[in-house]
Amino acid sequence: MVDPIITLDEAKAFLRVDYDDEDALIAQLILTASESALAHADGLASGEPIPESVRTSALIHVARLFDTRHDEDQPPAALTLANRYRRWDV
């Protein structure tokens, strides 16, 4: 399991959610989006600060997952932001 790269408060602000009823769901989506963003940014060195574009990628992914809860596609914008850190030589 990966540590979240965005906070619940950041995600709720991005989603414009001002109630607590779905905090558990949003927290789960944060973990999923964090894992996905970091997997795509696999060129980052361990312990290196997470670039804002990768954090934004996670926020976009949380929003997409929250808004379309049963859609399995990853949002292209989220992947684009994280892809610049991807190791393509593997």
Rank of each mutant, 00 (worst) to 15 (best):
S57D: 14
D89R: 03
F66V: 06
E48L: 09
H61P: 06
I26M: 11
A11T: 05
H61S: 14
A33H: 00
H61Q: 15
H70S: 09
V62P: 07
R16N: 13
S34C: 03
L79D: 04
H40V: 00
L65W: 00
D23V: 01
L38I: 15
I26T: 11
H61K: 10
E35F: 12
M1E: 13
G47V: 06
P51D: 05
D23A: 04
P51K: 06
S34R: 02
P49E: 05
W88P: 08
P76N: 06
T32W: 02
A41T: 00
L38T: 08
P4A: 12
S46P: 07
L59E: 10
D20E: 10
V17I: 14
D21Q: 11
E52Y: 07
A82R: 05
R69N: 10
Y85R: 07
R64W: 01
I6D: 03
A11R: 08
R87D: 15
L31R: 04
D18Y: 13
S34D: 02
R16L: 11
D20V: 05
P75D: 12
R55T: 10
L29I: 03
T80L: 15
E22D: 15
A33P: 03
L31N: 07
A77I: 09
V2H: 10
E22M: 08
W88A: 14
N83T: 04
H70C: 05
K12T: 02
A82L: 04
A37L: 03
P76M: 03
V17A: 06
D9W: 08
L59S: 08
